[in-house]
Design a protein around this nucleic acid. Sequence first.
DNA 1: TAATAGGATAAGGAAAACTAATCTATGACC
DNA 2: GGTCATAGATTAGTTTTCCTTATCCTATTA
Lengths: 304, 304
Amino acid sequence: MTRLPPLTSLRAFEVAARHLSFTRAAEELHVTQAAVSHQVKSLEDFLGQPLFMRLTRALELTPAGESYAPVLKEAFEEIERATRRLMEDQDRQGVLNVSISPTILSRWLIPRLADWQETHPEIELRLVSTPKLADFVRDGVDVAIRHGQGVWPGLAAHRMFQAKSVPVASPKLMNGPAALKRPEDLSRHTLLHDLVEPDSWRIWLAAADVKEIDPDRGMRFGTGAEAIQAAVEGAGVALARRAVIRRDIEEGRLIIPFEVPMPKNFAFYVVYPEGAAKRPKVRAFCDWALAQARQDAMTEDGEG
Amino acid sequence: MTRLPPLTSLRAFEVAARHLSFTRAAEELHVTQAAVSHQVKSLEDFLGQPLFMRLTRALELTPAGESYAPVLKEAFEEIERATRRLMEDQDRQGVLNVSISPTILSRWLIPRLADWQETHPEIELRLVSTPKLADFVRDGVDVAIRHGQGVWPGLAAHRMFQAKSVPVASPKLMNGPAALKRPEDLSRHTLLHDLVEPDSWRIWLAAADVKEIDPDRGMRFGTGAEAIQAAVEGAGVALARRAVIRRDIEEGRLIIPFEVPMPKNFAFYVVYPEGAAKRPKVRAFCDWALAQARQDAMTEDGEG
DNA sequence: TAATAGGATAAGGAAAACTAATCTATGACC
DNA sequence: GGTCATAGATTAGTTTTCCTTATCCTATTA
């Protein structure tokens, strides 16, 4: 099979030909005008002939471009239609697979499930609660709620709410020579990790600007609840969401020795494969979850 | 318009679906098996569903893949057909525009023009002899003969023959305190440049492993012939092809003070836009020029 | 004639794509 | 039933491509 021109440049040309404007093509493609200009130029170089005549405040297609553009338009539309069809077929069954970490499942989603069933009786949620991040394709997951910085390659992410973790420890650890006064004092205590968010200490220590402590040392637990239990028993210092340990604080089993400001983008996100943005069920869940999160923000003010 | 999946991954999937093998798809695309594997995976991630079932020594399309592949095949074939049509339309007129530097035009092409007219009477060559590298699109050039390392982005290049340059100077410069004995001695003489190959001294000095001399200093002339004339008159040291200065050497006007081995890939190349590889006229010229160059190699042995 | 609109261009940086090396699974062969 | 060969997956690192920022250029238009 013959070598095709670079597909990115074909796409840029097709859009530019439709708009007869590099600037507007750039908007459609969510890139800059310079990018489109480059791509079209490189396609012209490949073909060895110009596709546009650059007039003063207008573009015009050359005869070559004139004959080329409609074919490309048709080809890309075909691809687009097929892609959409593929996505929609996935939505035939009334089931939506949601991957979600155990903590946020029990603390956040379960209490709101009644609302979901009321507003979307036709869509049955199938909840996959794994500590590890799900692989969308392999695990057949449609949408997930994840903790992170909002950037996952190939995935679309919408911020729900900030998930600020604070260090918690037994009050016993506040006295003595190793008393927890400043973040640096953590070097003399055991860090309690959980596998649901294995990076939380790394993130926290970076935010606290503590470089001397190896974020990987300490003990590992399956879930956050187990790590917190260990903290209650004085085994070390865990990271926990404020909402989760409110009761323990009030009843004196745990204290928060100190806090540091966390970057805003560490938060919970609704996440799905980029191509799934148009799937009605994914859309429905995403919209619902974000609306719920917005409500939280209003009523609880600074949850998590 | 809806977001399309990454086009590179669509292409990889389409080829893999045709072969039902990542390995063979990789061959067709001139990449490695790992590249295809990655691309297909990323497409599956984008779509949120698998397109292949990986059996043990075979690939099988999932129903989704089954319905997707033929559409893509058709779309890419359409693009391919349109591209070929575009290239062939360029060949309507019986004229081929050739960009070529003045020196090689007079020294190499002109003597062989009769042969071209004999073997390809239907194609009229239009020779564009510019010192500077031609812009294929803007200058309407179909094919060029250029000097370089054989790598130009977006262009296909076929090596014709090596173009080894040697330093030449008047015999007068061989004596006295600044006598030319080793490449380092050039620091005490004027470098004579020409605009046709403005980088030749830079390349030569790099090959000679001389770092102390600024390759840009010296005098500049329009053509190699002028620079050589200046060398004859003792103005400095020029770089010239052996064939060009043979007479001057024999008659004692110039000498070659020393030589250094030059990398093999510095040579003259037949060059055209990648997409033009299938154009009959470009093909014809390219084949002819390469055949001529091969003949040279046999009869002259080490020309240039 | 200054302001504006739209494209071109250069240089540097970010992201995607590719490679090399290695690993895994399984069917074939003796 | 052990060993070999085949084909895809995976990981880490590199290369290439692509994109952006900033600036320039030209022709209109106010």
